[in-house]
């Protein structure tokens, strides 16, 4: 076009293109990445065993235990909800598989499948009840948290007569299942637990889904503005129920890891409080509690920070009592950073 001045498309000269640096800084996970680097350097200096390559596997293992669940919890948070029952749902999954296989004397894999069905059903129930009642997810999942916590102990005692599930380590299919969920291998002298590999695979798939697919776009939209998403034809209910079922799926996986790493026994009281650790990982990783913003990679970095701090405190020879205080401080710092980011993004 010859006359660019009269063209209606003339750029508003108050708006300049953002620099690469500014774009990078506006990524949701940037704060956690900087935090992770600082913590890494700090413990490399403060804790000599931290530098030992053999301990890297242990640190990654701690991170993966949190990280696997941080994947769906981050997605759910971006979708505008959170799930307080995620911690005990992991225990429910492990107990279901163990108790079912033992009580009915069936192949371990059948128990695993039943546990998958139960876990998905718990997720679907959370999502359905939430959409049906319009109650906040805090209340709905607080309810299921107590229900599952109670059922875990009550059903276990009813079935096994104790507070732990019966061991299924000598049953058919146990060996193969343990290989899938809780084996380990050596990589250049470092012992790598298989869950670390799974964790990386899950993060890669979930990050791809979130950023590169239609479903991912819809997850951002239902968390950012559910009414707006509905108005343009996004199936809001399906997306949210699907996200809760994703939490169910990952709770199933984490439950299987729990079951097979402990040689087929799960303590029925486990998992309480873990839900907050998953939420912390997601929030530290840049997910907004109010939804619509965040990243899967951020949740993974949050889990990595969790693993590094948990073991760093031990390796540095400090009293582990300090760990929780450290964790809480990090959560506050992360939320403040996120708040600043959000305000900047929404500033007109």
């Amino acid at each position: 076009m010859a006359s660019t001045i009269t063209s209606p498309a003339t750029a508003d000269d108050r708006v300049s293109a953002r620099s690469v640096g500014a774009r990078l800084l506006s990524r949701p996970e940037i704060g956690s990445l900087v935090g992770a680097a600082v913590i890494l350097v700090f413990f490399l200096i403060a804790a000599p065993p931290f530098r030992d390559i053999n301990n890297t596997g242990t640190i990654l293992y701690q991170a993966a235990l949190v990280g696997v669940m941080a994947v769906p919890v981050a997605l759910l948070m971006i979708g505008g909800e959170f799930d307080l029952s995620a911690g005990v749902a992991v225990t429910t999954s492990g107990l279901t598989a163990g108790l079912f296989a033992y009580q009915f004397s069936v192949n371990v894999w059948l128990g695993i499948l039943i546990a998958l069905a139960v876990s998905l059903a718990v997720g679907a129930f959370n999502g359905w009840l939430l959409m049906r009642t319009g109650l906040p997810s805090f209340l709905v999942t607080l309810g299921t948290f107590f229900i599952l916590q109670g059922l875990n102990i009550a059903v276990t005692r009813l079935a096994s007569g104790a507070v732990a599930s019966n061991s299924i380590s000598d049953m058919d299919g146990f060996g193969a299942a343990q290989k899938v969920f809780a084996s380990e291998f050596k990589l250049g002298g470092v012992t790598i637990k298989i869950i670390i590999v799974w964790w990386i695979v899950f993060v890669a798939i979930a990050a791809w889904v979130l950023l590169k697919t239609q479903i991912g776009n819809w997850i951002f939209a239902v968390g950012g503005d559910a009414a707006a998403a509905r108005a343009v034809g996004v199936p809001v209910k399906k997306v949210k129920i699907g996200l809760f079922m994703a939490v169910g799926f990952f709770a199933w996986f984490a439950g299987m890891q729990l079951l097979f790493v402990q040689n087929g026994v799960v303590q029925s009281g486990e998992g309480v409080g873990k839900e907050f650790v998953y939420i912390i990982a997601a929030v530290v990783g840049g997910c907004l509690l109010t939804g619509g913003y965040g990243s899967v990679a951020g949740g993974a970095i949050g889990a990595l920070i969790f693993g590094m701090v948990q073991l760093g405190v031990v390796y540095a020879g400090w009293n582990p009592d300090w760990f929780k205080a450290f964790l809480g401080t990090m959560l506050l710092l992360a939320t403040i950073v996120n708040l600043v980011v959000k305000n900047r993004a929404e500033a007109r």
Partner: peptide, 28 residues
């Protein structure tokens, strides 16, 4: 209220609910 999600980018909002995909994995 415009039915736009404030934290999503302009192009993602423009195609919200009508996303274009390509390839066997239906990538955006």
């Amino acid at each position: 209220d415009l039915a736009l999600a404030p934290l999503m980018s302009v192009w993602r909002n423009f195609f919200l609910g009508n996303e274009l995909t390509r390839g066997p994995f239906r990538q955006l």
